[in-house]
Structures are given as C-alpha cells and as structure tokens.
C-alpha cells in the first residue's frame, strides 16, 4: 500500500497556505496525518496536491486571551495532554485528549486535523460541542468564526469552504470548581468509541444543579448535544433519579449500526455512558452540597 503520486507543498506561512488552498485544484491539507495518511496509503483519497502545514509555527500554540483559551489548529494532541493550563482550566478537554488514539498517534495528531476529519467518534469534536467553542477559519477574504454547533454539516463534513484553513479553536472555561468528565467505551483502549459522553456540571451549596452540559459522541453521524436533558437537570437535586432521567435522552438518540455494533447496543451504551459521565462530573465538583438521596 503506497500513497498515490501527488505534488507536495510545505508553505512556511499561513498566508502562503491559504493562497495554495485557494488556487490548487483537488488539494488536501495535511495536518498531523494520523487520519489522512492511512487514507492515502489505502488510496481512499487521490489528491493532486498535498499542502502540509507542519512548518507554519504560528498555528501551534496554547494561549490565554482574556478569559478564553485559544488552541492553534496545528497544536499536537500530546501538547494538549501535557499542558498544565489545559489541565487547570479545561479539565474536560484534559480528560478527553487521553482517549484520542494512542500515545504514538497523539505525538503527531493535531486538534485541527481531528476537528476537520470529523469522525463521528472523535473526542475533540464532542469536546468542542460540549464547550460551545468557537472555530476559527481563514480564507482569502479573511477570518471567519464558526460556532461548534454549526461546524458539522453532515457525516464527516465540516463547515469549511474549499479555500479555507482551520487555524484554531477558542474555548471559554467554566468557573473554577465545576465538575467535568469524559467517558467512553471501546473494545480496546484507543479504538474508535462505540459511545462516549462528555458532561460538565455546576452546583449550589444545597446540592442543586445550576448548570449542565451533556454531549454524546460515536452514536450518531456527529456528536449530539442533549439540550433537553440539560434543561431537565438544571434546578434538580443531583441524584441517581435525575441522572437516569437525563440518560434516557441519550439512549433515545437514533444510533448508527454496523456489522460489529448493532444500533440498539450503541444506543444502550449511550445511556450508560451518559449516566457515568454525569455521576463522575458531579463527584468532581468542589464545594457542592451532599448528594441527595
């Protein structure tokens, strides 16, 4: 298995890269390559041009701006995994990144590449959806910001024009002391998740949920934000009953089935993962009241 012949471009600046994507026909952007390289080796994709972003140092960064945290598209997953700032401010992302592929692929893979590849089970996509993060793209006519909820147009299809490059993503951290959890189930650690769940919660001193987010990945063609379940949780005393009610929304998602994993099993797992993520997020809240009976 060898990649097909193509022309290779490795621009040194973002401006050059944008000019190349805007002018070359049948071009593919190469980021960390951990999804695109297998597709090239197996000749699922046959580009005439490959535009490698590896030399564009301005695209690899983790920085605070105002209260937000911005991560450049070419930031390696490993650098996110080992970032103290991410661990402190975005614990959901910190936990999710450990589920992305394997150590060897996180050393090469980037957050931007994962967001653009848009695999239904991608932990990075589920995480940006949970955070309502803002994706930042650059094209010939300038910068465009895209809400995470608008990023997925369909199965593995991001809202990115052929002449645009995803340059980064901006997260707004939740208040200190919130509880966050990312859980998933796969046959082998590092495999694509059969189902994953991301949850974030805040609570008042009486043990009532004041803010809730619940996102399910791997089950539908793209991660699903369960807004009805979230609304149902707010104001409730945190307990098994409340979490089980929210999890029923997860199990009701129209799940994809395949030869190995029937749709019913995936939907069942979505419910299990939702409940586990909520309970784990709850257990991590600082200064919460007692878990109500």
């Amino acid at each position: 298995m060898k990649p097909p012949a193509f022309s290779y471009h490795d621009p040194a600046t973002l401006a050059e890269a944008v000019a190349l994507v805007a002018t070359l026909d049948n071009a593919r952007v190469l980021s960390g390559g951990q999804s695109l390289m297998p597709m090239l080796n197996m000749r699922y994709v046959l580009p005439d041009h490959l535009i490698d972003l590896r030399r564009i140092s301005e695209l690899a960064h983790i920085r605070q701006s105002g209260g937000d945290i911005e991560i450049g598209g070419m930031t390696r997953q490993r650098d996110i995994e080992y970032s103290d700032l991410i661990a402190a401010k975005l614990p959901l992302l910190h936990e999710a990144i450990h589920w992305v592929g394997h150590r060897q692929t996180r050393n090469r893979g980037t957050i931007g590449g994962s967001l653009c590849h848009l695999d239904p089970a991608a932990e990075m996509v589920a995480t940006v959806v949970a955070f309502d993060a803002t994706l930042i793209a650059q094209g010939p006519s300038g910068v465009r910001e895209i809400a995470a909820s608008d990023w997925t147009l369909g199965y593995m299809t991001p809202s990115l024009a052929p002449d645009e490059i995803l340059t980064g993503v901006r997260f707004t951290p939740w208040p200190d002391g919130h509880g966050a959890a990312f859980v998933e189930f796969a046959r082998r650690h590092g495999d694509f998740a059969i189902a994953s769940a991301a949850a974030m919660l805040t609570a008042d001193g009486a043990g009532r949920i004041t803010r809730a987010v619940l996102t399910i990945g791997g089950v539908g063609p793209a991660p699903v934000r369960l807004t009805e379940a979230e609304q149902g949780l707010v104001g409730q005393l945190a307990n098994e009953t409340a979490f089980a009610a929210a999890a029923r929304h997860a199990a009701a998602i129209e799940a994809i089935g395949d030869a190995l994993v029937p749709a019913e099993y995936r939907a069942h797992l979505a419910g299990v993962m939702a409940k586990r993520a909520l309970a784990k997020a709850w257990s991590r809240i600082d200064g919460k009241g007692k878990l109500a009976a």
């Binding site: 298995m1 190469l30 297998p38 197996m42 150590r103 090469r108």
Partner: peptide
C-alpha cells in the same frame, strides 16, 4: 498494516514515538 493500526513500524522521532507508516519521509 500500513494504516496505523498494528504499531509495528513505531520509531522515535526527535525522541517521540510515532508510526513511521503515518508520516511522509519528506516530513
């Protein structure tokens, strides 16, 4: 496997493990 599943081709690149079938030599 040459598509990033088996790990047999793992080498250290600048001290970091990576699958050598999942990067171009020019990279």
């Amino acid at each position: 496997c040459e598509h990033g599943v088996c790990g047999a081709c793992t080498v250290l690149i600048n001290g970091r493990s990576a699958r050598s079938c999942l990067m171009l030599a020019v990279q």
